[in-house]
Amino acid sequence: MARAVSRNTKIGWTIAAWAVALLIFFPILYTIITSLKSEQEAIAGFDLIPSFTLESYQTVQSQNNYWRPFTNSVILAVGSTLLALIVAIPAAWAMAFSPTKRTKDILMWMLSTKMMPAVAVLVPIYLIFLRTGLMDTRIGLTVLLMMINLPIVVWMLYTYFREIPGEILEAARMDGATLRDEILYVLTPMAIPGIASTLLLNIILAWNEAFWTIQLTTTNAAPLSAFIASFSSPQGLFWAKLSAASVMAIAPILVLGWFSQKQLVRGLTFGAVK
Protein backbone atom coordinates (compact mmCIF):
# COMPACT_ATOMS: atom_id res chain seq x y z
CA MET A 1 0.00 0.00 0.00
CA ALA A 2 1.29 3.35 -1.01
CA ARG A 3 -0.37 5.18 1.80
CA ALA A 4 0.74 6.03 5.29
CA VAL A 5 -0.46 3.69 7.98
CA SER A 6 -0.80 4.73 11.57
CA ARG A 7 1.98 3.58 13.82
CA ASN A 8 -0.35 1.63 16.06
CA THR A 9 -1.83 -0.36 13.21
CA LYS A 10 1.63 -1.18 12.02
CA ILE A 11 2.70 -2.33 15.47
CA GLY A 12 -0.41 -4.48 15.70
CA TRP A 13 0.25 -6.22 12.40
CA THR A 14 3.92 -6.56 13.29
CA ILE A 15 3.12 -8.42 16.50
CA ALA A 16 0.68 -10.73 14.73
CA ALA A 17 3.06 -11.49 11.89
CA TRP A 18 6.00 -12.15 14.19
CA ALA A 19 3.89 -14.43 16.37
CA VAL A 20 2.88 -16.52 13.37
CA ALA A 21 6.42 -16.55 11.98
CA LEU A 22 7.92 -17.67 15.27
CA LEU A 23 5.28 -20.37 15.65
CA ILE A 24 6.17 -21.74 12.21
CA PHE A 25 9.87 -21.52 12.90
CA PHE A 26 9.54 -22.97 16.40
CA PRO A 27 10.30 -26.64 15.60
CA ILE A 28 13.56 -25.60 13.97
CA LEU A 29 14.39 -23.17 16.74
CA TYR A 30 13.68 -25.75 19.42
CA THR A 31 15.86 -28.29 17.63
CA ILE A 32 18.73 -25.81 17.58
CA ILE A 33 18.20 -25.15 21.29
CA THR A 34 18.03 -28.83 22.12
CA SER A 35 21.18 -29.53 20.15
CA LEU A 36 22.99 -27.25 22.59
CA LYS A 37 21.76 -29.15 25.61
CA SER A 38 23.18 -32.22 27.29
CA GLU A 39 21.16 -35.45 26.99
CA GLN A 40 19.83 -35.09 30.53
CA GLU A 41 18.66 -31.55 29.92
CA ALA A 42 17.07 -32.55 26.66
CA ILE A 43 14.58 -34.89 28.25
CA ALA A 44 14.09 -32.83 31.40
CA GLY A 45 11.05 -31.00 30.07
CA PHE A 46 10.40 -27.80 28.21
CA ASP A 47 13.23 -25.30 28.52
CA LEU A 48 14.28 -22.62 26.06
CA ILE A 49 17.64 -21.90 27.66
CA PRO A 50 20.23 -24.59 26.94
CA SER A 51 23.53 -24.96 28.67
CA PHE A 52 25.29 -24.25 25.37
CA THR A 53 27.31 -27.41 25.37
CA LEU A 54 28.70 -28.67 22.07
CA GLU A 55 28.98 -32.18 23.40
CA SER A 56 26.25 -33.57 21.13
CA TYR A 57 27.89 -32.16 18.03
CA GLN A 58 31.14 -33.82 19.01
CA THR A 59 29.38 -37.12 19.66
CA VAL A 60 27.66 -37.09 16.30
CA GLN A 61 30.93 -36.42 14.56
CA SER A 62 32.95 -39.00 16.38
CA GLN A 63 30.44 -41.82 16.81
CA ASN A 64 28.45 -41.57 13.64
CA ASN A 65 31.12 -40.50 11.26
CA TYR A 66 29.07 -37.46 10.25
CA TRP A 67 31.57 -36.26 7.68
CA ARG A 68 31.07 -39.14 5.32
CA PRO A 69 27.36 -38.53 4.67
CA PHE A 70 28.06 -34.81 4.65
CA THR A 71 30.68 -35.24 1.94
CA ASN A 72 28.30 -37.50 0.05
CA SER A 73 25.56 -34.88 0.24
CA VAL A 74 27.87 -32.20 -1.11
CA ILE A 75 29.11 -34.41 -3.94
CA LEU A 76 25.62 -35.58 -4.88
CA ALA A 77 23.98 -32.16 -4.72
CA VAL A 78 26.71 -30.19 -6.44
CA GLY A 79 27.68 -32.95 -8.84
CA SER A 80 24.18 -33.70 -10.06
CA THR A 81 23.42 -29.99 -10.45
CA LEU A 82 26.58 -29.30 -12.44
CA LEU A 83 25.92 -32.30 -14.67
CA ALA A 84 22.39 -31.10 -15.25
CA LEU A 85 23.64 -27.61 -16.10
CA ILE A 86 26.07 -28.95 -18.67
CA VAL A 87 23.27 -30.69 -20.51
CA ALA A 88 20.61 -28.06 -19.88
CA ILE A 89 22.40 -24.81 -20.73
CA PRO A 90 22.78 -25.56 -24.45
CA ALA A 91 19.25 -26.95 -24.63
CA ALA A 92 17.66 -23.98 -22.88
CA TRP A 93 19.79 -21.57 -24.91
CA ALA A 94 18.61 -23.12 -28.16
CA MET A 95 14.99 -23.18 -27.11
CA ALA A 96 15.03 -19.59 -25.89
CA PHE A 97 16.88 -18.02 -28.79
CA SER A 98 16.06 -20.27 -31.74
CA PRO A 99 12.57 -21.41 -30.94
CA THR A 100 10.78 -23.63 -33.42
CA LYS A 101 7.11 -24.51 -33.64
CA ARG A 102 7.75 -27.56 -31.48
CA THR A 103 9.71 -25.83 -28.72
CA LYS A 104 6.65 -25.37 -26.58
CA ASP A 105 5.70 -29.01 -26.96
CA ILE A 106 9.19 -30.13 -26.06
CA LEU A 107 9.14 -28.02 -22.93
CA MET A 108 5.77 -29.37 -21.90
CA TRP A 109 6.95 -32.89 -22.50
CA MET A 110 10.02 -32.28 -20.33
CA LEU A 111 7.75 -31.01 -17.63
CA SER A 112 5.61 -34.13 -17.94
CA THR A 113 8.56 -36.38 -17.15
CA LYS A 114 8.69 -34.62 -13.81
CA MET A 115 5.17 -35.81 -13.13
CA MET A 116 6.13 -39.46 -13.22
CA PRO A 117 5.91 -40.72 -9.64
CA ALA A 118 9.28 -41.96 -8.43
CA VAL A 119 7.68 -45.07 -7.03
CA ALA A 120 6.52 -46.10 -10.50
CA VAL A 121 10.07 -46.68 -11.61
CA LEU A 122 11.36 -47.88 -8.25
CA VAL A 123 11.38 -51.50 -9.38
CA PRO A 124 13.38 -51.16 -12.62
CA ILE A 125 15.78 -48.56 -11.22
CA TYR A 126 16.38 -50.68 -8.16
CA LEU A 127 17.03 -53.76 -10.27
CA ILE A 128 19.28 -51.88 -12.70
CA PHE A 129 21.32 -50.49 -9.83
CA LEU A 130 21.52 -53.91 -8.23
CA ARG A 131 22.68 -55.67 -11.39
CA THR A 132 25.12 -53.07 -12.67
CA GLY A 133 26.82 -52.59 -9.33
CA LEU A 134 25.68 -48.99 -9.10
CA MET A 135 23.94 -49.68 -5.82
CA ASP A 136 25.32 -47.52 -3.03
CA THR A 137 27.71 -45.66 -5.33
CA ARG A 138 28.04 -41.90 -5.62
CA ILE A 139 28.24 -41.98 -9.38
CA GLY A 140 24.97 -43.89 -9.78
CA LEU A 141 23.07 -41.60 -7.47
CA THR A 142 24.60 -38.47 -8.96
CA VAL A 143 23.43 -39.40 -12.43
CA LEU A 144 20.01 -40.36 -11.12
CA LEU A 145 19.55 -37.06 -9.28
CA MET A 146 20.70 -35.24 -12.38
CA MET A 147 17.95 -36.92 -14.43
CA ILE A 148 15.37 -36.11 -11.79
CA ASN A 149 16.21 -32.42 -11.75
CA LEU A 150 17.01 -31.97 -15.43
CA PRO A 151 13.51 -30.83 -16.44
CA ILE A 152 13.44 -28.17 -13.72
CA VAL A 153 16.92 -26.99 -14.68
CA VAL A 154 15.99 -26.69 -18.36
CA TRP A 155 12.82 -24.86 -17.47
CA MET A 156 14.40 -22.41 -15.08
CA LEU A 157 17.20 -21.60 -17.49
CA TYR A 158 14.71 -21.23 -20.29
CA THR A 159 12.64 -18.69 -18.39
CA TYR A 160 15.78 -16.73 -17.49
CA PHE A 161 17.23 -16.87 -20.99
CA ARG A 162 13.97 -15.79 -22.50
CA GLU A 163 14.21 -12.57 -20.55
CA ILE A 164 17.41 -11.65 -22.33
CA PRO A 165 16.10 -9.50 -25.17
CA GLY A 166 16.76 -11.02 -28.57
CA GLU A 167 17.58 -7.56 -29.92
CA ILE A 168 20.75 -7.52 -27.83
CA LEU A 169 22.02 -10.66 -29.51
CA GLU A 170 21.09 -9.19 -32.87
CA ALA A 171 22.94 -6.03 -31.98
CA ALA A 172 26.00 -8.13 -31.21
CA ARG A 173 25.65 -9.85 -34.54
CA MET A 174 25.41 -6.49 -36.31
CA ASP A 175 28.45 -5.35 -34.37
CA GLY A 176 30.40 -8.11 -36.00
CA ALA A 177 30.40 -10.66 -33.19
CA THR A 178 30.81 -14.29 -34.22
CA LEU A 179 28.78 -16.92 -32.45
CA ARG A 180 31.71 -17.50 -30.11
CA ASP A 181 31.98 -13.79 -29.28
CA GLU A 182 28.26 -13.59 -28.85
CA ILE A 183 28.25 -16.36 -26.27
CA LEU A 184 31.44 -15.22 -24.58
CA TYR A 185 30.95 -11.47 -24.31
CA VAL A 186 27.20 -10.94 -24.42
CA LEU A 187 25.19 -13.98 -23.55
CA THR A 188 27.22 -15.51 -20.75
CA PRO A 189 27.61 -12.35 -18.67
CA MET A 190 23.90 -11.69 -19.00
CA ALA A 191 22.91 -15.26 -18.25
CA ILE A 192 25.12 -15.75 -15.20
CA PRO A 193 22.61 -14.48 -12.63
CA GLY A 194 19.98 -16.88 -13.97
CA ILE A 195 22.42 -19.76 -14.05
CA ALA A 196 23.47 -19.01 -10.48
CA SER A 197 19.86 -19.02 -9.28
CA THR A 198 19.20 -22.29 -11.03
CA LEU A 199 22.33 -23.78 -9.52
CA LEU A 200 21.30 -22.68 -6.05
CA LEU A 201 17.76 -24.00 -6.18
CA ASN A 202 18.81 -27.33 -7.61
CA ILE A 203 21.49 -27.86 -5.03
CA ILE A 204 18.75 -27.39 -2.46
CA LEU A 205 16.41 -29.84 -4.17
CA ALA A 206 19.11 -32.45 -4.63
CA TRP A 207 20.34 -32.05 -1.06
CA ASN A 208 16.85 -32.64 0.31
CA GLU A 209 15.93 -35.54 -1.97
CA ALA A 210 14.89 -38.35 0.32
CA PHE A 211 13.35 -41.11 -1.73
CA TRP A 212 16.07 -42.36 -4.03
CA THR A 213 18.85 -41.57 -1.63
CA ILE A 214 17.21 -43.83 0.94
CA GLN A 215 16.34 -46.56 -1.58
CA LEU A 216 19.65 -46.78 -3.35
CA THR A 217 22.26 -46.38 -0.61
CA THR A 218 23.31 -48.21 2.49
CA THR A 219 26.52 -46.77 3.88
CA ASN A 220 29.11 -45.87 1.26
CA ALA A 221 27.18 -43.34 -0.74
CA ALA A 222 24.51 -42.47 1.81
CA PRO A 223 24.01 -38.71 2.00
CA LEU A 224 22.64 -36.85 5.01
CA SER A 225 19.02 -37.59 4.15
CA ALA A 226 19.61 -41.33 4.35
CA PHE A 227 21.93 -40.89 7.33
CA ILE A 228 19.27 -39.00 9.28
CA ALA A 229 16.53 -41.44 8.33
CA SER A 230 18.54 -44.12 10.10
CA PHE A 231 18.05 -42.16 13.32
CA SER A 232 14.37 -43.08 13.30
CA SER A 233 15.01 -46.13 15.40
CA PRO A 234 16.87 -46.71 18.68
CA GLN A 235 19.50 -44.01 18.27
CA GLY A 236 16.73 -41.45 17.90
CA LEU A 237 16.13 -41.77 21.58
CA PHE A 238 19.10 -39.55 22.21
CA TRP A 239 17.37 -36.20 21.87
CA ALA A 240 20.33 -33.85 21.94
CA LYS A 241 22.36 -35.97 19.60
CA LEU A 242 19.47 -36.27 17.17
CA SER A 243 19.04 -32.49 17.29
CA ALA A 244 22.70 -31.87 16.61
CA ALA A 245 22.67 -34.24 13.66
CA SER A 246 19.53 -32.58 12.34
CA VAL A 247 20.97 -29.10 12.65
CA MET A 248 24.12 -30.17 10.85
CA ALA A 249 22.06 -31.73 8.10
CA ILE A 250 19.89 -28.71 7.42
CA ALA A 251 22.06 -25.72 8.35
CA PRO A 252 23.98 -25.36 5.07
CA ILE A 253 20.88 -25.65 2.94
CA LEU A 254 18.81 -23.41 5.19
CA VAL A 255 21.30 -20.62 4.68
CA LEU A 256 21.42 -21.20 0.92
CA GLY A 257 17.64 -21.26 0.89
CA TRP A 258 17.35 -17.87 2.55
CA PHE A 259 19.31 -16.42 -0.33
CA SER A 260 17.19 -17.99 -3.01
CA GLN A 261 13.60 -17.26 -1.96
CA LYS A 262 12.73 -15.44 -5.16
CA GLN A 263 14.17 -18.09 -7.45
CA LEU A 264 12.37 -20.74 -5.44
CA VAL A 265 8.97 -19.45 -6.47
CA ARG A 266 9.99 -19.27 -10.07
CA GLY A 267 11.80 -22.59 -10.20
CA LEU A 268 9.16 -24.64 -8.48
CA THR A 269 6.26 -23.20 -10.42
CA PHE A 270 8.09 -23.63 -13.74
CA GLY A 271 7.83 -19.92 -14.32
CA ALA A 272 4.05 -19.89 -13.89
CA VAL A 273 4.35 -17.50 -10.94
CA LYS A 274 7.08 -14.88 -10.85
Binding site: K10, Y30, A210, L264
Partner: peptide, 27 residues
Protein backbone atom coordinates in the same frame (compact mmCIF):
# COMPACT_ATOMS: atom_id res chain seq x y z
CA UNK B 1 0.80 -5.79 5.60
CA UNK B 2 3.13 -2.98 6.54
CA UNK B 3 5.17 -4.56 9.31
CA UNK B 4 8.55 -4.06 10.90
CA UNK B 5 11.19 -6.62 9.99
CA UNK B 6 9.33 -8.04 7.02
CA UNK B 7 12.52 -9.58 5.63
CA UNK B 8 13.17 -11.59 8.79
CA UNK B 9 9.55 -12.68 9.06
CA UNK B 10 9.75 -13.97 5.51
CA UNK B 11 12.91 -15.90 6.29
CA UNK B 12 11.39 -17.48 9.39
CA UNK B 13 8.23 -18.48 7.55
CA UNK B 14 10.05 -19.93 4.55
CA UNK B 15 12.55 -21.96 6.58
CA UNK B 16 10.64 -25.24 7.02
CA UNK B 17 10.71 -25.73 3.26
CA UNK B 18 14.47 -26.18 3.33
CA UNK B 19 14.36 -28.86 5.99
CA UNK B 20 14.82 -32.24 4.35
CA UNK B 21 11.86 -34.62 4.85
CA UNK B 22 13.56 -37.10 7.21
CA UNK B 23 14.74 -34.29 9.46
CA UNK B 24 11.35 -32.62 9.46
CA UNK B 25 9.72 -35.90 10.41
CA UNK B 26 12.24 -36.62 13.15
CA UNK B 27 11.96 -33.15 14.63
Amino acid sequence: KPIFGQGIVRILVISPFFVMPPVAALI
